[in-house]
Write a protein that binds this DNA or RNA. Sequence first.
DNA 1: GGGCCGGGGTTTTACGTATAACGTCGTTCG
DNA 2: CGAACGACGTTATACGTAAAACCCCGGCCC
Lengths: 379, 379
Amino acid sequence: MHHPDPAVPDPASRQAAEPAPRRTAGPDGRGTGASGAGGPGAPGPAAGRPTSRDVARAAGVSQATVSLVLGDKWRGRVSERTARLVRETADEVDYRPNLAARNLRLGRTRTALLVVPALTNEFFARVYTGAAAVAARHGFGVVLYPSPEGVGPARDPFASARAALDGVIASSMAADALRAIRGTDLPLVMLDSDPADTDAAAHVNLDIADGMRQVTDHLLGLGHRRFVHLSSAVPSWTFDVRGRALAACLGGVPDVSVRTVPAPLEVNGAREAAERALTAPGPRPTALVCDDDIVAAGACKAVRRLGLRVPEDVSVTGFDDLALATAVEPELTTVRLPAERIGERGMAALLDVLAGRPPERGDLPVTLMPRGSSGPPGP
Amino acid sequence: MHHPDPAVPDPASRQAAEPAPRRTAGPDGRGTGASGAGGPGAPGPAAGRPTSRDVARAAGVSQATVSLVLGDKWRGRVSERTARLVRETADEVDYRPNLAARNLRLGRTRTALLVVPALTNEFFARVYTGAAAVAARHGFGVVLYPSPEGVGPARDPFASARAALDGVIASSMAADALRAIRGTDLPLVMLDSDPADTDAAAHVNLDIADGMRQVTDHLLGLGHRRFVHLSSAVPSWTFDVRGRALAACLGGVPDVSVRTVPAPLEVNGAREAAERALTAPGPRPTALVCDDDIVAAGACKAVRRLGLRVPEDVSVTGFDDLALATAVEPELTTVRLPAERIGERGMAALLDVLAGRPPERGDLPVTLMPRGSSGPPGP
DNA sequence: GGGCCGGGGTTTTACGTATAACGTCGTTCG
DNA sequence: CGAACGACGTTATACGTAAAACCCCGGCCC
């Protein structure tokens, strides 16, 4: 803490003296403030961008009036004529409100922090996209806390989030980052994570268990009996649930065996894990149920490396339905998770909480996408 | 413009009355303002987070001193003892500076905007990661402008970037968003885009032409003579360069033919384009040179769909070296682009520009990764 | 004809920080 | 011995915005 803030010598001498023309304006000479009322002969302080006070001066009104008009709070306090004048003047000088000043004044920033393990995982990039879209629609912004170490220990999410925040959305696998967040009074929305966690003002979850049920129904229906669960080695609620759901779905089914093998969340690491699982002593499994498409892609490579075929010899299923799922051959049978939707619902929930409304409840449905990587087991 | 700012009723009733204890202070009774003059019986306004003035009161110094100490500008102006006291007090009350106030005061925000076409493309996610890492190391933040429409027309990048900005970094394929940025006096760093563009204060480019040369050397060396260039249909400098470089490399080589076929930046769309290219009248090409790994993955699918083999019948090469490249089979021969490095260099260049230093120049090198998708053409 | 109301503004204040300008000692030097 | 200086702070101000409080004036009602 204490932000010693070393680094960067000092942006000081940024725009040295240099009056700097700034803004070549439109095609015509206009833009230098028509300001009807005898434009004050370029009294311009020539400094930074125009402020609301500059607009006021140019329009011949007070700064308060400008603020009222542009803030859309003038009904019955400012005449239609004046309002229009102010708006036109603002346009002409290309006025843009200073966000820092507004944030300071209002005490809120309309900015949310999204904590994700790694943006390079397509799933989280899509969550961000969904959240950002909803945010934008409501005048909010989303800033990311991308744990640079991936899932590693997050130092202080707030130190790197330069903007002040109104709320936090935390996605799966960010338990450690969350610990840093506790103690903050910012409202917290948790995505795809333990609903028992009471720190959150709202949860947005997927019906993961149902997804796993669809997978097992599909594979059992095809005739599979010997399963291996390639579980993600990353400690996370969302993966724990997959494991528990699989056990629940296959437990009690006669003649069914299932073994769990951990695999890293990376194609070739997962391939190695799958190879070990396939070459383990005992009868070979006919179905590899993977926690993730990335692991499933690795599993497919493993099958082929051992001279076997997908799905004739071994079926493989994934989770997520990333672009990867339809890029590999055969295409992956997988459970489609509505990533963007999660982000959207997460942001919507945060907006609800901030507005004092009860956030929408209910898990998001997931759907099995049966494709080429699963089929009936060989004889 | 004019931010009508509808939406969201009002976060008003967030933390109701509730005096809130705040600060249990140190072990001893101290800390409640040594200020000699009979500590005012808990005059606490009890409102929001502690401010620097609260720290000052608690430490018995002036607000200016707190600012000096925590801003690390006290050498010779504040005694070591006082400085330590201030720091300890700040810790005790869990003081965190109000970013909005600081930004307003300083007139800069230590925040950069990164404009990318789509974060779901792993390449750009990696660019972001690199930029954010360097930024964090220098106390900067990075906020994204994710064109929700993908490469589509960007409305106003600044409207959605809630934070005030110090600078802008724009990555390839964002020409239209850039047009909106022009007219702003923010320093602009352009990544992987036309160096002739004079709006930019700095450029960070890749030696794409050299990458293409490595690809053609590799394929010509293997004996290929009939090429198809699966070019990305997205209008962008980075793709134009690939086309020109390919033409330059293959032009003049005896017996060589090359045809260009546009393909969308999406696996199955690219597959269809590749199928058309492979079934076109005339002798079948033996090498598909793709602008991108995603297109290359689609090309591989096309080859297989037509009953041919990769690489025995048709070789395929890509660009980028995404995770996808080693997830498919055979693994893609591709040109590795240092995505994170681009982001890092881009952010570093922006920091240089802001500090008045000349940004580092020179293109980043790229390297061919020869893998299974390319081999000698059949007889 | 005086109080009241409401339309149409303006003046003023506060948000929390950084820093320039200003004091106040005790020492030291010319 | 007075001035100058350094060490150690403090007071005051500005950043740009939003909004509460105020003010003026013409009309209306009692």
